[in-house]
Design a protein around this nucleic acid. Structure first.
Lengths: 217, 217
DNA sequence: CGGTTAATTGAACGCATTCAACACGAGTGG
DNA sequence: CCACTCGTGTTGAATGCGTTCAATTAACCG
């Protein structure tokens, strides 16, 4: 049974951009094991990655240990351009990951290519839209709405097939700004209302996606 | 008595970029009255603004009426590039505002200028850093920390002079993801601890900025 | 099988909200 | 000058949502 990981299509923008193509052509293929870091917080920014297989999460930890997850990245998406000189987030392989990497300097070498410059700008804009959407979710939604919205974002709007979640409850909690207990409770609550079915803890189905979207606010 | 409005320097990046200069040279000067809109939510993106005088806030309102403030913009800063085709936020003049505007198409006309393309990219990156910083604040800080961080962000790190706040308590609340009552309580609490002094409701001083920074987390 | 980590469930607590009343300041008109 | 109003901000008391702490169950892997 082949079961692809749930893809986050919350942005609604196709991940295959000119930048993705360029990385695809010039990138070096690298593999990361589960939990391995693509780059660390405070690392100098020097490489861009295009996810080929698996899922990547970006994480930041404050001085006093509080953790936040910036986003999850799926095949076709670009990781590594979220900041200035130094990385604010670290990037970690949630599953075994295959990626293509290009040095930022290499990308700059093509700077004459207007097409490419535009592509980097577009990718940065996409990143900004993600952040703004995340911002709204964090401040305006309650626990129930957050979890509902998260589930919806994991399932392509097409057929309501079973999807596999790459992330743990802790990852979800840190992404939504909740605790694992609250996440678990909300999932249970939604399951009681038959808005989601969990055959196993990491696999689910949305039998009434539209209804769930409604209460995701 | 001349008293300039508090400037948000939380980003730590100088607002005067190549983009700002270009707008300064080619921009059309426009004045907005207090509460007037520079552009509305869902408007097509067609103009970029450089604030010359006054303060601008970006706002978004959800279908069910919940309000969020994206950011406050001060003289020298760029407003209007926060999204794709259509604006997600509206931009409103918090005070009387003087701004310079350029049509986006006009900016694109200079596209051959690599310098300028880079400037737009940098400005977009700055916007992204703002959003990420805001994200962290919303999910990881409690009410006390939020308000402390907000006060600190309004005061240039230099001399602890009295500064004037352009925004209402409601604006602060919607920016921090709190209610006006909570904001008011936290301000009162910090004042009791002599970490801030309010001669009037819109004017304050930070006698112990470092101490406030510490508990802003 | 244990042994270990991840996830769920329950009960008590606490922080921020909600609802309500009150204070303050600015502007208007008697 | 005072009285009145309206918008804004503050303060108090009660409620509730999400957290915290603790115990139990489920999943994973040797």
């Amino acid at each position: 049974m082949t079961l692809t990981f749930a893809a986050n299509d919350s942005s609604g923008i196709a991940p295959d951009s000119a930048l993705a193509e360029t990385i695809q052509r010039h990138g070096v293929r690298i593999k990361f094991q589960r939990d391995e870091e693509l780059y660390a917080q405070d690392d100098d920014v020097d490489r861009l990655f295009r996810v080929v297989r698996g899922v990547v999460r970006t994480t930041r930890v404050t001085a006093d240990g509080r953790r936040q997850i910036g986003s999850f990245y799926y095949p076709g998406e670009i990781v590594g351009l979220e900041t200035g000189r130094q990385h604010i987030f670290s990037a970690e392989a949630l599953t075994d990951v295959e990626a293509q990497a290009v040095r930022r300097s290499a990308v700059c070498a093509f700077a004459g290519d207007v097409e490419l410059d535009r592509a980097i700008l577009d990718a940065t804009r996409l990143e900004l839209v993600r952040a703004q959407s995340h911002m709204l979710m964090l401040s305006l939604k309650n626990a129930r709405e957050k979890v509902a919205a998260f589930l919806v974002s994991l399932v392509p709007s097409g057929p309501a097939d079973t999807v596999e979640m790459a992330m743990s409850r802790q990852d979800i909690a840190d992404y939504l700004g909740l605790t694992i207990e609250t996440v678990s409770r909300m999932l249970g609550q939604l399951q009681d209302e038959a808005l989601v079915e969990f055959p196993t803890t990491r696999r689910f189905r949305l039998p009434r996606r539209a209804a769930l979207e409604t209460l995701a606010a």
